Simulated scan of single mutants.
Amino acid sequence: MPKPKIQWKPDAFYNLRRATGVVRDVEARGRRVKAAAGEGFEMTSRQGARNPQGRWRVTIFPRTIKAARRNAKDNTLVKALNAGRSR
């Protein structure tokens, strides 16, 4: 039985990682985590460096001093991660 030949397209994975559906899903998960964390947290969304992956990333971080203290004391963001699971 002949082995199938695979031709890898260098930009295919990069383009897949920034496809509209992928970005929408990642950002929706980020919004759910941000909402579960409560007030004082901010979210950013961007594609990482193409080195070589270029994965899309969402970052949630404390925007205020009060949120930063709450996060340091209670691990707010760690506890909110479960809200980001797929539904």
Rank of each mutant, 00 (worst) to 15 (best):
Thr59Arg: 09
Gly84Arg: 02
Phe13Arg: 12
Thr44Ile: 13
Arg63Asn: 07
Arg32Gly: 04
Ile60Trp: 11
Asp11Pro: 04
Arg70Ser: 09
Thr44Val: 13
Ala67His: 02
Pro52Arg: 15
Arg31His: 06
Arg31Leu: 11
Asn75His: 08
Pro62Ala: 04
Arg17Ile: 14
Ala28Lys: 03
Gly54Ala: 07
Leu16Gly: 06
Lys66Phe: 02
Arg32Phe: 14
Ala68Lys: 02
Trp8Met: 14
Gly54Ser: 07
Ala49Phe: 00
Gln7Met: 02
Asn15Lys: 12
Gly21His: 11
Gly21Thr: 14
Thr44Gly: 12
Lys9Arg: 15
Val33Thr: 07
Ala49Asn: 07
Asn71Gln: 07
Ala80Glu: 08
Arg55Pro: 00
Thr20His: 07
Asp11Val: 03
Ala35Gly: 05
Val78Asn: 09
Ala37Glu: 04
Val58Lys: 01
Arg57Ala: 10
Gly40Leu: 00
Ala35Pro: 01
Val33Cys: 08
Trp56Cys: 04
Ala68Gln: 02
Arg50Cys: 00
Arg85Leu: 14
Gly54Tyr: 01
Arg32Val: 07
Arg87Trp: 06
Arg63Asp: 06
Thr44Ser: 11
Asn15Met: 09
Gly38Thr: 06
Ala49Gln: 08
Gly84Gln: 05
Tyr14Trp: 06
Arg18Asn: 06
Gly40Gln: 03
Pro4Phe: 14
Ile6Leu: 08
Leu81Thr: 03
Gly84Tyr: 05
Asn51Phe: 00
Ser45Val: 15
Lys73Ser: 02
Arg55Leu: 15
Ala35Ser: 08
Gly48Glu: 02
Arg17Gly: 12
Val22Tyr: 01
Met43Asn: 06
Pro62Glu: 03
Pro52Gln: 11
Thr64Lys: 04
Gly30Val: 05
Arg87Phe: 04
Ala49Leu: 11
Asp74Phe: 12
Ser45Tyr: 03
Arg70Leu: 04
Arg32Thr: 04
Gln53Gly: 05
Leu16Ala: 13
Ile65Gly: 05
Trp8Ile: 15
Asp25Phe: 04
Phe61Ala: 05
Trp8Glu: 13
Gly38Leu: 08
Glu42Ile: 00
Val26Ile: 15
Asn51His: 01
Thr64Gly: 08
Val33Ser: 07
Arg87Thr: 14
Arg29Thr: 11
Met1Ala: 13
Pro52Cys: 12
Ala68Asp: 01
Glu42Pro: 04
Arg17Asp: 10
Leu81Val: 06
Ala12Phe: 01
Met43Phe: 12
Arg17Ala: 12
Ala72Met: 12
Leu81Ala: 12
Val26Pro: 02
Asp11Asn: 13
Arg85Asp: 15
Trp8Arg: 15
Ala12Met: 09
Lys79Asn: 09
Gly84Ala: 11
Asn75Asp: 10
Ala35Trp: 11
Arg57Tyr: 03
Phe13Pro: 09
Ala72Trp: 04
Asp11Phe: 00
Arg69Asp: 07
Lys66Val: 01
Val33Gly: 09
Gly84Phe: 08
Ala49Pro: 01
Thr20Ser: 06
Asn82His: 09
Ser45Ala: 15
Thr76Phe: 06
Ala37Trp: 13
Ile60Asn: 05
Arg57Thr: 11
Thr59Ala: 15
Pro62Arg: 10
Gln53Ala: 09
Gly84Cys: 07
Lys34Val: 06
Gln53Cys: 04
Arg24Glu: 14
Arg57Lys: 13
Arg29Lys: 15
Ala67Trp: 00
Ile65Gln: 05
